[in-house]
Each structure stands twice: as structure tokens, then as C-alpha cells.
Amino acid sequence: MTKELDNNNYAALIQTLKTEISQARIRAHLSVNKEMISLYWRIGSQILERQDNEGWGTKVIESISNDLRKEFPEMKGLSARNLVYMQTFAREFTDFEFTQQTAALIPWFHTCTILDKISDPKQRIWYIQKTIENGWSRNVLSIQIQSNLYARDGKSINNFKSTLPAAQSDLAQSIIKDPYNLEFLDIQGKIHERELEGKLIDHIRKFLLELGQGFAFIGNQYHIELEGEDYYLDLLF
């Protein structure tokens, strides 16, 4: 005779399976991200090597981009602009092992943001590690850099233990989906974009002052319909 289903045990099983599936998805996407980051580093390194050895100028980047996109038309990320980022990435992070073990744990555009906004090597590594530790999205990362979190909270970098981003973190979602100074929010540690949105609304008067004259706040998660599709604007001014 079949035993009756224990609802509590069943719910616990479903939760366990959901966690297993979510973590497996993240590991799979991290593996893909690691390969892409490694490829970008190797491309950047080879361009740098040719420039050093053969005196190539910057115009050759455009030619490389055009030839690669002809060969791989379906592949994104081969624009001249992105090739320059690869070149900068390889030049600034010379340790390939570091790129595989740490830098490859964040999406590429997170890395581009760090390369754009930070020049100090120690700070770059610190922000990468903090991004992984706290699961920051690129928007939150940008705000932390703009508010100079390193100066307010920075400590000497110790032995960093890489951990798999939590399935619900913005960083994990960024990996799966692959400029105003908001210093007055004083955001530190773990935060999701929806929490950030809430803090902006809580500080809406100060935020409007940051934007300047002529702005009005309409609402958050504002619904619009475009060609039959539903869209929700985080914040509408």
C-alpha cells in the first residue's frame, strides 16, 4: 500500500531540488564565462605581443575586428571597442591564473566597468573580490565605485576564498542573463537592485537634487506596453 505523501517532506525535497538546479545552472554559466574571459585575455595578449614586436598601430584593431566578425558573424564581442578592452584587460591583469580563478567569476561588462573607472591595480582587485563576495550587479558595482567604497571600507587584501554567487544574487542573475554619484546612499555589503531602488525612493528628494532642476518623479516599476510587450521601468522621471 502506498504511503500518503508527507507535505512537509515533499516541500523540503522540492526546495532542495530547486537549490541544486539553481546552483548547477550558475556553475554551468560560470564555466562558460570562464572560457570567454580566458579567450578574451588570450586575444588581448596576442594583440599586445604583435604591437610590441611588429609596431602595429591602433588602426589594426579595426581590421582585426572586421576579419573576425566576417568569420564569426554570430559571435558578439568582437567589435573594435571590445578588442581594445581585451587588450587593456591583458595588459592590466598579466597573471593569467588570476584571471581564471577570480576575474572569470564576474561577467565581462563588470570587468570593463572596473577597467574604465579604476586605475589603481589594488583597488581593481579589491572591487572584483567585493563584487563576488556581495553578488553585486554592474549598476551596484558602479555606484560603489562612484561613492569610493574602497576609501571608506577598504582593507588590505588577504587570502580571498572564491565562492559560488548565491542563486538569488544580482551577480548570479547577471552571469545567467549575461552616472550620478549616489554617495548619499552610503550602501555597503550585500544589496540587490530592488533594494537599491527602494533606497533611491526613500531618498527621492536628495536624488532629485542630484539630478538638478526640471525633474519630476513619476513612479517605480512603471508599466508601459510597446508593440504588445509589457515593460517595467525601474524609475521614471
Rank of each mutant, 00 (worst) to 15 (best):
N8M: 14
F237Q: 13
R27V: 10
T163N: 15
S162Y: 15
E183Y: 09
I201V: 13
E62P: 14
I204F: 04
T19P: 06
E193P: 01
I187Y: 00
P165H: 05
N181Q: 13
L78S: 05
L17N: 07
S174Q: 03
Y127D: 00
I64H: 09
R27I: 12
E197Q: 10
T19W: 09
M1I: 07
P107S: 02
E49C: 08
D6P: 08
Q46G: 11
D170R: 03
P107C: 02
A151I: 13
S142I: 06
L182C: 01
I125W: 04
P73A: 08
L141V: 01
F96G: 10
T113V: 07
T131I: 01
G154F: 00
S147D: 08
A24R: 13
G214R: 12
L236E: 05
I125G: 01
G189W: 04
I145V: 07
N9T: 13
D67M: 12
Y222T: 11
W56A: 13
P179V: 15
N66R: 07
D120P: 04
M36A: 06
S38A: 10
G55A: 03
Q173P: 02
E92F: 10
N8I: 07
T131F: 00
F160Y: 13
Q15A: 12
I157N: 03
S119I: 07
D6S: 12
R205C: 13
D178E: 15
N139L: 09
P121S: 05
I125Q: 02
S169V: 04
Y180K: 08
V140P: 00
I21P: 07
E35A: 12
L200H: 05
T131P: 01
I191W: 02
I37L: 05
Q129V: 09
K3I: 13
N9A: 09
D178S: 08
E193R: 15
Y40E: 03
T2Y: 14
I145D: 02
M36S: 07
C112L: 11
E54W: 09
E92G: 02
H223D: 07
T131Y: 00
L208K: 05
G57P: 06
K206V: 14
D6N: 11
A104H: 02
K177Q: 14
Y85H: 06
G154I: 01
Q123S: 09
V140T: 03
S45N: 02
G212S: 06
V140I: 05
G198E: 06
L105A: 03
I224G: 07
S22R: 05
D202N: 06
T111I: 01
L149R: 00
I61A: 01
F98P: 03
E4P: 15
R138S: 06
K76N: 10
K190N: 06
V84R: 04
E74T: 09
D202G: 14
W136A: 02
F72S: 02
S38D: 11
N33P: 11
L141R: 00
G212T: 06
G135K: 00
N82K: 02
K59R: 14
I14A: 09
L164C: 11
W108D: 01
A90G: 03
D186Y: 07
N53L: 11
L211C: 04
M1N: 08
T19S: 13
N158D: 13
T102V: 14
